[in-house]
Design a binder for these strands. Sequence first.
DNA 1: TATTCGCGGGG
DNA 2: GTGTACGCGAATA
Length: 878
Amino acid sequence: MEFQVLDVDYMLVDEKPIVRVLGKTAEGKVACGFCEDYVPYFYVGTGVDLLKDNPHVVSVEKVTRNVVMGYQPPRDMYKITLRNPARTPEVRDFLKSKGIVPYEADILFKYRYMADKGLGGMGWVKADGTRGVNTGTTQADIKFGIGKIAPAKDRENAPLRVMALDIECVPVVPGALPTAEKDPVVLISIVFGEPYNGMSSAVLGTRQGGGVHALDSEKEMLEEFIRIVEGFDPDIITGYNINNFDLPYLLDRMRRNGVRPVFGRCTQKAVTSRKVGLRYKATIFGRVVVDSYEIVKKDFSLKRYDLNTVAEQLLKQSKASVKHSEIEKLWKGGIEDFTRLVEYCRQDSVLAMNLVKALNIMDKYVALAKVSGILLQDTIGAGETTRIEHYLLREFNRAGYVMPCKPDPKEVGQRETRSMEELKGGFVIDPSKKLHSSVLVFDFRAMYPSIIRTFNICPTTLVAGNVGVKAVETPSGARFVDKDVMEGVLPRILERMMKQRMLVQKKLKANGLDPDRRRVLYGEQWALKIMANAFYGHIGYARARIYDLVVANAITACGRDIIQNTKKLIEEKYGYSVVYGDTDSVMVHVDGDDLENMAEIGREVSGYITKQLPGIMELQFEKIFKRFLPLAKKRYFALYASRNDDGSWKEGIEMKGVETVRRDWCGLVSDTVKDVVEIILKKEDTKEAVRYFKGLAEKLLKGEIPIQKLVITKTITKQPRSYAGMQPHIELAKKMQARSPGEAPGIGDRVGYVIVKGMGLVSKRAEDPAYILERGLQVDSRYYIENQLMPPLERIFKVLGIGRSELLGNGRQLGVFERLREAAKPQVIGEIGLGDFNGFLCIGCNKSYRMMPLAGVCDCGGAIKFSSTRGPAEAIVV
DNA sequence: TATTCGCGGGG
DNA sequence: GTGTACGCGAATA
């Protein structure tokens, strides 16, 4: 039979492991194979005599293996076979304490098994065997003792059944988060990815009515929940933030109610939720827990990730809002209120389901599992390291190597400092900082993977100082064995991945591809790219088993050498100038402005350079920058033209390293930067850009800019009192607190403010936009020009040779400078209270007086007004 | 300007 | 479970 691997684990029977391989057949049946003759093992180079009387050790076998430490012949090693996987750490740590270095003594047993049998997560397997083995209480349609098991040809993914859930509970303390210690679960909503007993969803509750499937007690409700999960038997359990709220909460309530939390595909194995780092992670045998919150947060860039925002932005679905403070009222209220709560609960799980189904968020994780070989569940929770490590284990083993164990924390620490000091990155060509036209953009295809392949770079091919073997020396001085002598493991892996990706991409180009098939293929090529690109970083990663600074530095050194040679070659051969480049890209100025002609030059140049480059290195022509404005390394604007699939050209503006949407800048800044850059790039008319800026400054001075464009938003993160320095949003929060304590923003709130004209520090002049409109206060246009617009725009104009004076001055009429001085004059407010009064002030020159000057006017002749924290005033109201 | 600190989501 | 281990904006030096 064939099935697709969903989960693997093992059970212990009489201290002996039985591996379980659970998956789905093409028909959607659950199959589970049991392997009773697979045992744990690891390796050591020496010290086997220490294990003579060790009760956990079954056998010691002398073997020949390679170690991953440079180019060297295989050695004698000892394969230690144990009885119980759970005892491995004990034996391993004992050996370590005696100074023995174990190998592969920290591989999860299920992954040890999968690597040895060639099985991968979401991979198809062919298995045969016998019925009637000890299958414990595993829940599966087909259960069998594994005779043979081996990877099978890939085919269409088996259908996966999805279930979404959401719970509601009423906190005893109003306003506080509910705690499982005190607060019962009152509602559980379940959405079925496919109809279950004719239902698309169900809401369980401990109150009658409102369409609820009512139960007499929380205990009965929890038991019913378990029955429904068992009945529907989902492969995937999803929900919004279920890992950190719903699931641990349900498990806790089950425990308190004396309900065993078993709703996985084995009634012997309870569902668990354990703290991993800062957060919790649930494990359900045979099912995959998909927390849509965690995935959305990883895969989409949004300002906020509450379900409201996410549903609106990603699903274009609005969510009926129920404030958390209302829940208690709705739960205890009339039938209408109660129904509202029920539907709110149902909707949350509907949305979680939609995130999984409508957004196809599982596509990439399924692809990653297939490419990397780790279980689907682990592609979600674990990071890149886990995927690479597992892949490397299989490949190194296949080539006769044993992997070192992961480094202990102090080793990690040492490596981290070494990497920090010695690991060098890519080369950045100093940009020619001016406005360029007609720039061709090239990049090296998969630069680091290609370097690894070209120079046969691998920890297994690194040649020690004086070993006499045919080798290639890299610019860093490190030497790697010639490919003819021995191909490295990494180069071989990358060759296969890159070729596989090209194959998939070719399939993707076929016409009339089924959309589902297209998504799968797209995901596969994406996963192959991600994986291939991750190997370089992994070698320089301090926690990696194959961490090697010499190898990592050799790779980047080749990269730096290649980009610099390419620059030289282009300049010498063609006389074009390379105006910028970063790590794996070069920007080249050429003559002419006809896109087709330029593309032709691009093809010519990339073809020529590629011929000159070593090995499989390839420079490809990417696109054209019709205009290119580099401000500094890694910061530029460009007007690009790139080819569509149908051969037509697509234009757009590219901004690299330029933060346009930062919260400490108002909307006017990003708008203006965008507009100015567009004028510069599209019209190549710097004068117009200057005029545009001046016009905007004028408008600002005249108060013609809508106030919304001037709002700067910041978050209050702690008690306003406990802020050391002075900050505008905090000062405003204090003011608002004084005005109307009920409506004032508090901790966690985002405060939008506008700086108004007046005396004193900028921070003291932050105002609530609504208050400004209401009172007709004037905006401090000087602040907005000087502190908001000028900093980013000055940098841009500077590159174009336009200085501050040209931006702000104006020969004929009153320049912006003068207007600024004018604008700086404080705005006199009507009346102040006696409490606000703090002296006298000249509105002509800002000179302040403690007492009214006898002359009644200032020395400068300006009028004297009352001074206050709110600005100068006409009168005091007593 | 670089480095450390804090919190997200959920009810 | 032969474990693992965030990431970004704000605050602070």
